[in-house]
C-alpha cells in the first residue's frame, strides 16, 4: 500500500523542469501525479511515476537531486465530504499530514498523503474500510 514518490530538489532555473520531464519521457516513464512546492529560489517537485526506481537511477545519472519518499494514496468518492471523511479519521487518530496533493477522475478522487508515520496512516484507514491504491495500480495509471 506504500507508494514510492519521487522528490526532487530543483533550483529555480529556467528550463530545469522541462529537462526533468524530458529525461522521464526519453526513458518511457509515465507521470501519474505531480505537485510543486515552491520557495523563493528553489522548488521541490513531488511526483508519482511508473517505475520509480528506474526514474531515480536515470535522474541521478543526469545530476538531479532525487530521493524516494513513502506516501499513501487514498481513494475517496468524488463528491462533497469525500476527503473530509478520510481526513477526520486521521485527525481522530492524531496523525499529522506533512503535505498532500489530490486529483479527481470521474467518480473517484485520489489524494497522495505524506506523513511521518505512513504505515500508521495505512493501518488506520484500512481499519475504517477506506480504499487505498496499491503501488502496482498507481504506477500504471
Amino acid at each position: 500500500m506504500i507508494i514510492q514518490q519521487l522528490s526532487i530538489f530543483l533550483e529555480d532555473k529556467s528550463g530545469r523542469l522541462t529537462e526533468l520531464t524530458k529525461i522521464l519521457a526519453d526513458n518511457d516513464i509515465n507521470i501519474t501525479a505531480l505537485s510543486i512546492a515552491d520557495a523563493s529560489d528553489y522548488g521541490i517537485i513531488r511526483m508519482v511515476v511508473g517505475r520509480p526506481e528506474l526514474a531515480v537511477r536515470v535522474l541521478k545519472e543526469q545530476g538531479f537531486s532525487v530521493h524516494l519518499t513513502e506516501v499513501a494514496c487514498i481513494i475517496v468518492p468524488n463528491e462533497p465530504g469525500g476527503l473530509y471523511h478520510a481526513l477526520k479519521i486521521l485527525t481522530d487518530n492524531n496523525i499529522n499530514i506533512d503535505y498532500m496533493y489530490a486529483f479527481a477522475i470521474q467518480s473517484t478522487a485520489l489524494a497522495v498523503i505524506r506523513s511521518e508515520s505512513i504505515s500508521k496512516v495505512i493501518e488506520v484507514l484500512q481499519k475504517h474500510k477506506l480504499e487505498l491504491m496499491k503501488a502496482s495500480q498507481v504506477y500504471q495509471i
Partner: peptide, 8 residues
C-alpha cells in the same frame, strides 16, 4: 535531505 519546504 528533505522534500519539505519548512525543513529546508
Amino acid at each position: 535531505w528533505s522534500d519539505e519546504v519548512k525543513v529546508l
